[in-house]
């Protein structure tokens, strides 16, 4: 388990573009609030730029430039209007995460998971992954980690304690599914966090084919 540090392989997954959307969301949210992670990301973009300049070129069609020049004055597609978020939501939720919320934090359809824990699940454009906001009351335990694979937690507000370590706003926990412990929300502020489960239904091989239907939510 990595507390508040992205592993190199996850950083490369993200910077190369290979990370699936929900994982990319957790990482972008973390990086919005963590300068060190962003510097690491910038280095990895730098590497991408270097690799791009080294690639064997592929000749483009003769008409491609003319096609492009003819399109330059096209109006930009209008973006779908986002809800008018309240000031608290805008202060707490980093930009990459905001488009996934359909309302301000207090107006989301929170579902009670158990006493002291509420959840707002949302979809990304990539189906099959679980992504959710969790709101944990002060001093209450967080849900157990999933055993389906890697799981990412990013603290948005408040804090929680995990194995004696305090994770506050912007901090990230990368757990691999084998971690068997139960973090506790801060006993004064509680905790609001983003959680993302990576690759819940991508088992390979015969066992995966047998198990996959049961792993879908």
């Amino acid at each position: 388990m990595n507390l508040n540090r992205l592993s190199d392989e996850v950083l490369v997954d993200y910077a190369s573009g290979a990370a699936p959307e929900p994982v990319a969301l957790a990482i972008a949210t973390h990086m919005s609030l963590n300068a060190e992670a962003r510097r690491d990301y910038e280095q990895m973009n730098h590497l991408g730029g270097a690799l791009l300049m080294s690639i064997d070129e592929e000749a483009v069609s003769d008409h491609l430039l003319d096609d492009l020049l003819a399109r330059l004055d096209e109006p930009e597609a209008a973006q779908s209007p986002s809800p008018a978020f309240d000031a608290q939501t805008k202060a707490i939720v980093p930009q990459p995460l905001l488009p996934y919320l359909r309302a301000s934090l207090d107006d989301l359809p929170w579902q009670k998971v158990y006493n002291g824990v509420e959840e707002y699940r949302f979809e990304t454009t990539l189906p099959g992954y679980k992504s959710a906001l969790l709101r944990i009351a002060p001093g209450k335990p967080m849900p157990l980690h999933s055993h389906r694979g890697p799981e990412y937690t990013v603290v948005l507000d408040g804090a929680y304690y995990d194995q004696g370590v305090r994770l506050g706003r912007g901090d990230l926990c990368e757990a691999d599914g084998h971690d068997q412990h139960r973090p506790i929300a801060d006993d004064k502020d509680g905790c609001l966090c983003l959680i993302v489960l990576d690759a819940p239904i991508r088992l390979s091989g015969l066992l995966g084919i047998v198990l996959n239907p049961f792993l879908k939510n």
């Binding site: 969301l25 990482i27 972008a28 962003r38 930009q95 990304t124």
Partner: peptide, 8 residues
């Protein structure tokens, strides 16, 4: 066909 959560 995925969105790309990224920094701006």
């Amino acid at each position: 066909r995925e969105a790309r959560p990224d920094l701006k």
